[in-house]
């Protein structure tokens, strides 16, 4: 893709915006404009890259990110699989749609007690992450599977293809862009799920770090934990965005 003047301009403005945001963060912190609980960006960085704290952050990241990954993978697989199922068996679709939207509307905090009992405190985050991801992927995959055009479906009908062949050769490739978009948008949802889960009494993770730092006025630690979680989510989101662009170029 060629970079036009307009694209350069919007890129520059975007970078200026981010720079302004970071500068404002630093300035507010240095001048204590928002009180003692807003540290300058530099102080947060200093704290984050302090070698004596490395062990603390690495352990927390390991705990949280493993829950994110487990939840993300479980949610994606179940979401895509169930979407495929209701696509082949349309009878079950209304009930599945309804269940998915009820699950989506239940606030994660309401499910926490159930998960804590069912699958232990440590894995509650994973379960909430999986549910969040499941909903997004179920919805995007079901709508994606209807993306194949009527003309293409007629073609397969005329060629006498079976339902499964059509699913594999036509509907799934046509659904791929929607699925990948869903996978992109479920990245922050997976992080939210894992962190929330840790707020309900987990003994490890970035979420626990946030809550204990909040309660004990450990301001730089609090901001560092939030910064790490947000940045990690953004990086994965950006990578999925690249994958999305590739898939859109190939399948749309």
């Amino acid at each position: 893709m060629k970079m036009t003047a307009e694209r350069w301009q919007s890129l520059t403005l975007g970078i200026v915006g981010i720079a302004l945001f970071l500068a404002a963060w630093e300035a507010i912190g240095v001048n204590r404009l928002a009180g003692l609980t807003w540290p300058p960006l530099s102080a947060v960085f200093q704290f984050m890259f302090d070698p004596t704290k490395a062990q603390l952050f690495i352990r927390a990241m390991e705990a949280s990110f493993s829950m994110v990954i487990l939840g993300y993978v479980t949610g994606s697989v179940v979401g895509i699989a169930l979407a495929g199922l209701v696509h082949v068996l349309p009878v079950v679709r209304p009930g599945m749609d309804r269940l998915a939207s009820v699950i989506h509307a239940i606030p994660a905090i309401a499910l926490a007690p159930l998960f804590i009992v069912l699958i232990s405190r440590e894995f509650t985050g994973m379960a909430i992450a999986a549910l969040n991801v499941f909903f997004i992927l179920y919805v995007s995959t079901t709508s994606g599977l209807n993306n194949s055009t009527a003309g293409h479906r007629d073609l397969f009908q005329v060629l006498g293809s079976s339902r499964t062949t059509r699913l594999l050769r036509l509907d799934l490739p046509a659904a791929l862009p929607a699925v990948v978009s869903g996978m992109k948008y479920s990245v922050p949802a997976a992080f939210i799920g894992a962190i929330l889960g840790e707020w309900f009494g987990s003994s490890r993770g970035l979420g626990l770090l946030m809550v204990s730092a909040m309660q004990n006025f450990q301001i730089p630690l609090l901001w560092s934990a939030v910064f790490i979680a947000s940045t990690a989510s953004l990086i994965v989101f950006g990578l999925m965005g690249l994958l999305e662009q590739f898939v859109y170029g190939r399948y749309k």
Binding site: A34, P188, F191, I192, L196, V211, L222, A229, S230
Partner: peptide, 15 residues
């Protein structure tokens, strides 16, 4: 909007 904003709650609560 692509950051897990809910994770900001502890920071906002303290602020």
């Amino acid at each position: 909007s692509s950051v897990p904003v809910v994770a900001l709650i502890p920071v906002l609560a303290r602020l």
